[in-house]
Design a protein around this nucleic acid. Structure first.
Lengths: 381, 381
DNA sequence: CTTCCAGGTGAATCGCAGG
DNA sequence: TCCTGCGATTCACCTGGAA
C-alpha cells in the first residue's frame, strides 16, 4: 500500500475556478489522506498561493503532570509527535520544507506555527531553504495553561513565521484589511486570541478529537492578510481542518494533507458544515480613503457578528452588509466604516456607528455597541 | 596587539565577595574591552551564574528608509552587524556560545535576545550546544516603529530565549518575586515595555550613543527572576552597559565585554552613576521558600492541635485522628504523615497536607495551614 | 429565565534534599 | 545513582446543575 491511501473528496465548491490553469492537476477543496511529504510530491511545481503548516512540535514531555488539586493534565502524547533526536526532527523538517518550497508559487508565502520546542529549528531551516522571513508573529493566548509547579514563566504564547519564497519576491499582503481590522492602526506582530474551546472545539463522546486544534480566528487573520479570494491554500498538517473551514468561509480554495483517518473524518464533516460568505461580504477594503475607525473588526473576526450579516439603523431606514475586514457596504454600494457609512447615508457630518447601527438580537433590534460591551466584558480583566 | 586591549576598571563594590572562591580570577564589576570570544576564553570554567547576551542581529537591511513625511530613518548600520552569509553568522554564534557554555556554572542560565533576523539560528544553536530551553519570552514593545511602507505587520516585539545549562539542570527562578511583580498572578511569557528613550537613553551631542540600547526594565525583570544577590552576571555584548547598571542596582556582580571604546566609556560613566539598592529593599524580593519549615508535629507538641483531635478535608469526605507523634490515622486504620495520608485517601500521587486537612475552628472548617501561620507569627521575631 | 457555583481543562520539554 | 518522603503548586474560560 502506498503512502497515500485514500482521497477523501468533498463536494466541489460552486464558484468558478477557470482562473486557475493548474486547477485540474490539484486536489482542490479536498483532503489527501497520507504522509505529507509523499502527498506533496504529487503536487505540481509552483502551484499554490499559500502554505499554512502546523507541524508536530517535538515536545519531548517527561513524566505525568498533575495540577495542584491533584487532577491529571491530559498532555500531547501521540505517536506523530515522537522523534528520536533533534537530528531526526531536522530531517523531517527539511523533508517537508523542500516540497513546500517547490510547490509554492514565486508570489506565494508560507506560514509555520510552533513553540519554543521546535520553532527555532524550523525557522533556521526556513531561512536555509531561501525563504525570506517577512515577520514573526506572536499568538498571545488569552487563557494559557498555568505553570503548575511554579518553576518557569507561564508559557502563554506560540510563534508563527511568515516568509516569502525568496529575498525580493513579490507577495500578497492586504495591508488595508489588516489596518481596518485593527481599529485603524497598523496590525502589529503580536496577536491575542483565546485558545480553541467551547462550541468550536471538535469533540467526540465528550473527548477532544485533536489535542492541538487551532482557533479559527487565528486562521481567519492569516488568510485574510495574505491571500485573495480564489487563492489556493495548502495545509500539509491538516488535522481537523481549521484551515479548510476558514478558507471555505473566506472564499479561498484549499488542499489538506492528513495522515490520521479520524482527523480526516472530523475535518470532512466540519468543512461540509461551514458556510461560505457571499461576495459582498468578501470584498475587502482597498482604498485608503474608506476607513473604518474602530475595533469593529474584532467583532467580525471573533464571529460575534459574522461577515455577511445585515445591520440597520434603529428605524430600519437604512441597512448595510458587514464585510470580512470589518467595513460596511450599503444597499446602493457605498462603502465605509460603521461611522463613515452612517454619516454618508444620513447626510450628517458625523455619526457614532456604534449607536447608529443595530443588529437583530433575540428580542429585537439592538445597537452593535452592546456587542462591543459583551466583547469587552469577555476580554477585559 | 592582542584582542583584549584594555581593562576598564570601575570602583570595586563595597560588599564582601569572600563567598566566591573564583572571584579573584574574575574581572568582577569591570568591563573587558576586546573581542568577546577572546575575552571569554580568559575566564575560568563554570564561573558565572548567568549570561545575558544581546548579540548582533544580522539585520541585513537594504537601502535607506524614509518616513512618509520624508524624514530619514536612522537604522542600524554599524560594522559590527555585518556578516557575509548565514554560515558566517552561524560560525560567529557557535564561537561565542561554546565559550558561554564553558564559563556558565552548572546551575546557571543563559538569556539571549534577538529578532526574527537571527533568533531562529541562535535558538537552534543554543539547543545544539545542549542548553535546555526553559521559556521563550516575548518583549512586546509599547511603542514600536511603524512599518512605513505598509508592506508587512508592524514589527512590534523581540524574542528572548531563557535556557539552563542542560536537561535536568538546577537553576534559579524567583517564582514568588515574579508573581508579586505581576499583581499576584503567575508571570507570563509575554512582557510589555516601552523601548528605551527619554532620560534613560544615552546621548552624546544629541545623538544616541548606541543604536539598540535595551530598556533597564527588561534587564531588571530578567535579573530579578533568575539571579540571587551577589550572583555573577556576564554580558558578552555589553554595549552601553544596561546589564551592568541594573546588576549594580540589584546587588548583583557583573562582567561586561565590549569591543567599541566609545560604548565602554559611556557604560563606565553610566554605571558609576547607578545607585545600588540597600539590603532591606533587596530582601523584600526574596522567596518565601527560605522561610523556616514547621513540622506538623510542632503544632501537636505545642498543643495548638491536641493529640486525639479529628481533622477532615474541606468537604468532610475523609477524616483522621491526630496522634501524639504528629502522624495521622484514618477512620479505616491507615496511617501516615499529613501529606502521605492525604494522597493515599485521594488516590493521588501527591498532596499538600497543609491545605488538604482542616480543623474545626470557631467559625467553621479551616485549613491547618492557618495554624502554621499562627505558629510562625508567634515564634518568629 | 437568570444567576451563581462547582467542576473540568488546555501544545507542558513542570522538585528536591537526604540517605 | 537510585529511592524515599517532604511539601510546594494554577489561570481563564466553558459547562452543567443548583439556587
Amino acid at each position: 500500500m502506498g503512502a497515500i491511501d485514500t482521497i477523501a473528496r468533498l463536494g466541489r465548491a460552486t464558484w468558478e475556478d477557470s482562473r486557475l490553469a493548474l486547477s485540474d492537476a490539484l486536489p482542490l477543496d479536498q483532503i489527501v489522506m497520507g504522509d505529507c511529504i509523499a502527498a506533496m510530491k504529487a503536487l505540481p511545481d509552483k502551484s499554490v498561493d499559500m502554505i499554512f503548516a502546523d507541524p508536530p512540535y517535538n515536545l519531548q514531555l517527561g513524566g505525568e503532570l498533575f495540577r495542584p488539586d491533584g487532577s491529571h493534565v491530559d498532555a500531547v502524547n501521540d505517536d506523530w509527535d515522537k522523534f528520536d533526536s533533534y537530528a531526526a526532527y531536522d530531517a523531517f523538517t527539511r523533508g517537508w520544507l523542500a516540497q513546500a518550497h517547490r510547490v509554492l508559487k514565486d508570489t506565494g508565502t508560507i506560514w509555520v506555527i510552533g513553540s519554543y520546542h521546535n520553532i527555532f529549528r524550523v525557522g533556521a531551516a526556513v531561512q536555509d531553504f531561501g525563504f525570506w522571513i517577512l515577520n514573526d508573529i506572536v499568538w498571545r493566548k488569552a487563557n494559557p495553561m498555568p505553570n503548575f509547579k511554579g518553576t518557569r514563566f507561564t508559557n502563554a504564547h506560540e510563534t508563527l513565521i511568515w516568509a516569502s519564497k525568496g529575498e525580493g519576491s513579490k507577495y500578497t499582503f492586504n495591508y488595508r484589511s489588516m489596518k481596518t481590522l485593527n481599529d485603524e492602526l497598523q496590525m502589529r506582530s503580536d496577536w491575542e486570541f483565546p485558545i480553541c474551546g467551547g462550541a468550536e472545539r471538535l469533540k467526540k463522546g465528550g473527548v477532544k478529537v485533536h489535542p492541538t486544534q487551532k482557533p479559527e480566528a487565528l486562521l481567519y487573520r492569516v488568510l485574510l492578510a495574505c491571500t485573495k479570494p480564489g487563492d489556493v491554500v495548502l495545509d500539509p498538517f491538516f488535522g481537523t481542518g481549521t484551515t479548510g473551514a476558514v478558507a471555505k468561509r473566506l472564499g479561498r480554495r484549499w488542499i489538506g494533507i492528513e495522515r490520521e483517518p479520524e482527523y480526516c473524518a472530523a475535518a470532512v464533516e466540519r468543512i461540509d458544515a461551514a458556510l461560505p460568505l457571499d461576495e459582498s461580504a468578501l470584498a475587502t477594503m482597498q482604498s485608503p480613503k474608506a476607513a473604518p475607525k474602530v475595533a469593529f473588526g474584532k467583532l467580525v473576526e471573533t464571529n460575534m457578528l459574522a461577515p455577511g450579516s445585515v445591520i440597520t439603523d434603529a428605524k430600519r431606514r437604512w441597512s448595510a452588509t458587514v464585510r470580512a475586514d470589518g467595513s460596511l457596504m450599503s444597499a446602493c454600494g457605498q462603502v465605509g466604516s460603521i461611522h463613515k457609512l452612517g454619516s454618508t447615508l444620513q447626510g450628517a457630518p458625523a455619526c457614532n456607528g456604534w449607536i447608529f447601527w443595530h443588529y437583530e438580537g433575540a428580542d429585537g433590534l439592538k445597537p452593535i455597541d452592546e456587542l462591543r460591551q459583551t466583547y469587552l466584558l469577555a476580554t477585559q480583566p
